[in-house]
Design a protein around this nucleic acid. Structure first.
Lengths: 111, 111
DNA sequence: TAGTTTGGTATACTCCATGATACTGGTTAC
DNA sequence: GTAACCAGTATCATGGAGTATACCAAACTA
């Protein structure tokens, strides 16, 4: 039980670490929405800088959330795609969206 | 569709904002685990400082995640409790735990 | 009545995520 | 051949999250 608690907090913090920061979620969202080139993704996320996008994409590649492919002979030379692993996030993201929405409603209701 | 996307990203970032930071989840966890006094919670979370705990508890009270009651005549004079609202987090937290655990397994499997 | 516990506050600091801005080497479009 | 676009990198600045440490008044406890 006690051991289990620690494990759960650890798991929570891991998830938070992977999802954390300002840009991860918008990036995942953008890629899953059909943006695959660097500049495309950049333009689709208001406020992000090339620097942050570059950094985040690298980190996310390390975390196996996205795949970067470079193919000189393809129409899109550098291509970012979400991995099946990224899609495994689906349920978490859904629940977070649900919660965020009802949170907003609650705030409005109480103000 | 486009509008919906923005709303969803917003909702995600709201959730992240409320859950974010290093200590929120451990604190929720601790309170839900039966710790209700300040020093109890503090001792149950290794590494946290009184300053951070104090700050976080205040913020969480504002966000209606916990309730603080002061009753001079009660056995526990200052008492922190999770709200039903906090409990509405259940599904999010569960999914995050699931994801975090499988993430760890994945990392181990691939190393 | 001295020591400990409780519920915090105050002050000063560090470090890191993010921001701002500029630049680059290659490719495609006109 | 030059202008625009692509996929980034390099530097520097900054605000805020988190840390360290000390302190406080009130209650309780031996």
């Amino acid at each position: 039980m006690e051991r289990n608690q620690k494990e759960e907090v650890q798991a929570l913090q891991d998830t938070l670490y992977v999802l954390g920061g300002k840009w991860r979620l918008p990036i995942i969202n953008s890629i899953c929405n059909g943006n695959h080139r660097f500049r495309e993704i950049e333009r689709s996320i208001p406020g992000i800088t090339t620097r942050m996008l570059s950094r985040e994409l690298k980190e996310m590649e390390i975390n196996m959330l996205i795949k970067r492919t470079k193919d000189r002979d393809a129409e899109i030379q550098v291509k970012y795609e979400s991995t099946p692993y990224c899609k495994s996030f689906g349920p978490v993201i859904e629940e977070m969206i649900k919660w965020g929405k009802s949170h907003r409603e609650e705030i409005i209701r109480n103000s």
